[in-house]
């Protein structure tokens, strides 16, 4: 049997991940759409993985320099995104009451 092209495997992962994303995001309550945005912002900073490889696994100064910049930018997002999401969600917690009506 011939080898499967890595791009095809990537495509399988891609399509399935979109499918999962689509279904999961529809369950998010509209009240939390802003935290959804900030958390997805933090998740898209997963690009830090590529940035780390660029900074750490290259030999040239160009590669290391630009890689370092990319790591720094992505790190702002990782920390900023998750922490600001946490801060927002804490606000939703404070007002939690044993209310009779919890319609979402």
């Amino acid at each position: 049997m011939e080898q499967i092209n890595p791009t095809v495997i990537n495509l399988v992962i891609f399509v399935l991940a979109i499918y999962v994303g689509y279904h999961v995001v529809w369950t998010v309550t509209p009240a939390l759409h802003t935290p959804l945005m900030s958390v997805t912002n933090a998740i898209s900073a997963i690009i830090i993985v590529g940035a780390m490889l660029a900074a750490g696994a290259t030999d040239s100064t160009l590669g290391k320099g630009i890689g370092l910049l990319a790591v720094t930018l992505a790190a702002v997002n990782v920390f900023g995104g998750f922490l600001v999401t946490q801060r927002m969600l804490e606000m939703f917690k404070k007002k939690e009451r044993p209310a009779a009506e919890k319609k979402q």
Binding site: G56, L68, A70, A75, V76, V78
Partner: peptide, 21 residues
């Protein structure tokens, strides 16, 4: 390479944390 990464994460993470707060 790892020192570079560490430096980037500390600087970027510091800025991100500051802004988020």
């Amino acid at each position: 390479g790892l020192a570079l990464i560490g430096g980037g994460v500390i600087v970027g993470g510091g800025i991100g944390t500051f802004i988020a707060r």
